[in-house]
Design a protein around this nucleic acid. Structure first.
Length: 583
RNA sequence: GCCCUGAUAGUUUAGUGGUAAAACAAGCCCUUGGUAAGGGCUAGAGUGUGGGUCCGAUUCCCACUCAGGGCUCCA
């Protein structure tokens, strides 16, 4: 929230919304209406009435009519009996009243115009004067108190600003954000699609999208090799026994695809790679000299996410994870953890990602059923992670009840372009695997030691989610090293086609992704098409270039910079340099 | 999963209770063009799938599938 005044303004606007709704739909039960980032909402129980986006205009109009008579908010305090009488028939308000009584707080009502609402306060001075620049945005379902065990209410979202300019600017920004939505760009740039016949949340990568995926994977291989990882490959399925051993089945069953019952046992699609990697660790006797052992794999996992939560590439059901597990001794945890953190930060720097923050995700002793109940280990592990974050001077927030069931983690949080907070990278400490899988090593004294700690990490998230962020981050204008087509060659006429293909061949040989537009179009049109495809460089080949003594082309960028004719050899040298610098 | 919205040619959209229209893309023809859309012609969907109402459905109703928005920012 930018400031208190705006918060008050928006909360007041929520009151106004409720008043308009009651006016239009008198049977409606009002519940809660807070100010939120960028706006406000109010949750209603409309009873049998159905409300859709098309009704918003009507409600907004009524708000504008009502607000003309809205003087200052009048506060009054009532006794618990009075409150219960006033809100009789509204189970939601009664529930809130009961909570207030339990907390031994004052019950206050606020009234403006004809509408009085249970409210703790925090309003604008004069609704009539200030509440002018608002807009209702959408209708959504929301569970009472956010729990799917409760009734589904109808939520109306809106926004409100102090000035007309600010409101218009905000609405413009919403429109702009839509333009760089990865789902829209993914289609326009032919990167991926989701096919009805294949299934929900299952992404089909097209050739251009696959180029980017492969390049990111290549980068990961290189960086991980330098950081001392070794690569492994494991199958996409495994027997039930493996997931019982890992403990995923009881904890994670809802998120896993249902089992496949075969002659020789029951199989599951893997929802994570760790159990497979643990089996690799157990393949043979490990010496202390081998630790830390870092097993890396871009492993594809399958999770049966709730259908309503699926969203483009951000939440999918099949995902290629930038996974690795490090097996180490207790005294190596800190260094390993710091190593991953550094790697993560380096990746983000390389991609120019800045808008992220770290979250130390801890367990919650109040919800022991969700976690392995070993308080000492939790305390120790959380302390180690905290120390690394502090020593590396990385700002972070500590949040309870966000840990994995086997240990605390550090998550890297991002805001997507549509404003939803998502976890990008994750580094997790696991002190449960050693016991479950009986992970051991032979120590310096020749004795088996069971103190093997596991770090799970996925700095580049899963391909799907990471690509979603990259597409939106770059607005589809990928840097040269990632661009699916790096140079689009545009012959001025068919007479120059041969030369264009000759240059394409030379570029390909130099490792540059080039493509000739051999359509029968005017040069202007070809430039337009390449610009829309956000190809970094266009190479124009006409009579002038054909007549040049050495292979040459005229270069233009997607941003319209025309740098004139240059020799191909020179052009290639500059390109390669830019590509190698990842700039 | 639940609430709301939507699904019409490869894509983006229009439209109607009497079996669909346009733009771009595609193919062909003319044009061989020098830095953001040259012109013409042709072909292409029976309106997501399955039911129902009706003389008749793409249009109305129901179910399903998929997509989009939302589901602990608290009187």
């Amino acid at each position: 929230m930018e400031n208190k005044n705006l918060e008050h303004l928006r909360h007041s606007c929520a009151h106004l919304l409720a008043a308009a709704v009651i006016d239009l739909y008198p049977q409606t039960k009002v519940t809660l209406g807070p100010a939120i980032d960028n706006g406000f909402y109010y949750d209603f129980d409309f009873g049998d009435a159905k409300i859709s986006d098309t009704d918003l205009g009507k409600i907004e109009k009524r708000m504008q009519d009502l607000v003309k008579k809205w003087e200052d908010f009048q506060q009054r305090e009532v006794s618990s009996d009075e409150a219960k009488k006033i809100f009789a028939g509204n189970v939601y308000k009664l529930e809130i009243v009961d909570e207030i009584i339990q907390r031994n707080e004052k019950i206050t009502l606020y009234k403006s115009g004809e509408f009085e609402d249970l409210c703790r306060g925090g309003h604008c001075e004069s609704p009539k004067k200030e509440l002018r620049f608002f807009k209702l945005l959408s209708v959504a379902g929301a569970y009472w108190r956010g729990s799917e065990k409760h009734k589904m209410l109808t939520r109306i979202y809106g926004t409100c600003f102090a000035t007309k300019d600010e409101l218009e600017k905000h609405l413009w920004q919403l429109e702009e954000a839509k333009k760089r939505d990865h789902r829209k760009l993914g289609k326009e740039l032919e990167l991926f699609f989701i096919d009805d016949v294949v299934g929900k949340g299952l992404v089909m990568w097209l050739p251009k999208g696959t180029i980017i995926r492969d390049l990111i994977e290549e980068l990961a291989r290189k960086m991980e090799k330098e950081a001392g990882y070794v690569r492994v490959v494991t199958p996409h399925i495994a027997k039930e026994e493996l997931f019982l051993t890992s403990g995923h089945l009881p904890y994670y069953k809802d998120s896993m695809y249902p089992p496949m019952v075969m002659d020789d046992g029951t199989y599951y699609l893997k929802a994570m790679n760790c159990p497979h990697h643990h089996r690799i660790y157990l393949h043979g006797v490990r010496s202390y000299r081998e630790l830390p052992l870092r097993l890396a794999e871009y492993g594809t996992c399958y999770r049966n996410e709730l259908s309503g939560t699926l969203s483009g590439l951000l939440r999918v059901r099949a995902m290629a994870m930038n996974d690795a597990h490090m097996y180490c001794r207790k005294d190596q945890i800190k260094e390993e953890f710091a190593g991953v953190l550094k790697l993560t930060i380096n990746y983000f720097k390389l991609f120019g990602l800045k808008d992220y923050w770290f979250r130390l995700s801890k367990w919650d002793p109040k919800h022991v059923e969700k976690y392995i109940n070993e308080p000492e280990n939790w305390e120790f592990a959380e302390q180690v992670l905290r120390e690394v974050l502090v020593e590396m001077n990385v700002p972070f927030k500590e949040v309870e009840n966000e840990a994995a069931f086997y240990g605390p983690k550090v998550d890297v949080q991002f805001n997507s372009i549509i404003g939803r907070e998502e976890t990008m990278s994750t580094i997790q400490l696991d002190f449960a695997a050693k016991k479950r899988f009986n992970l051991t090593y032979i120590d310096e004294k020749g004795e088996a030691n069971n103190e093997v700690f596991v770090i799970h990490r996925a700095p580049l998230s899963v391909h799907e989610r990471f690509l979603a962020f990259l597409i939106e981050h770059y607005a589809g204008k990928f840097p040269l090293w990632l661009a699916p087509v790096q140079v689009e060659l545009l012959p001025v006429s068919d007479a120059h086609l041969d030369k264009a293909f000759e240059i394409e061949k030379a570029l390909t040989k130099a490792g540059i992704r080039a493509h000739v537009n051999n359509q029968q179009l005017t040069l202007g049109k070809k430039i337009r098409l390449a610009t829309l495809q956000k190809v970094p460089y266009m190479g124009i080949i006409g009579q002038k270039e054909v007549d040049a003594p050495k292979l040459s082309l005229s270069v233009r960028t997607r941003d319209g910079v025309d740098s004139g004719m240059q020799e191909l050899e020179l052009f290639i040298t500059t390109l390669i340099q830019t590509i190698e610098n990842h700039s």
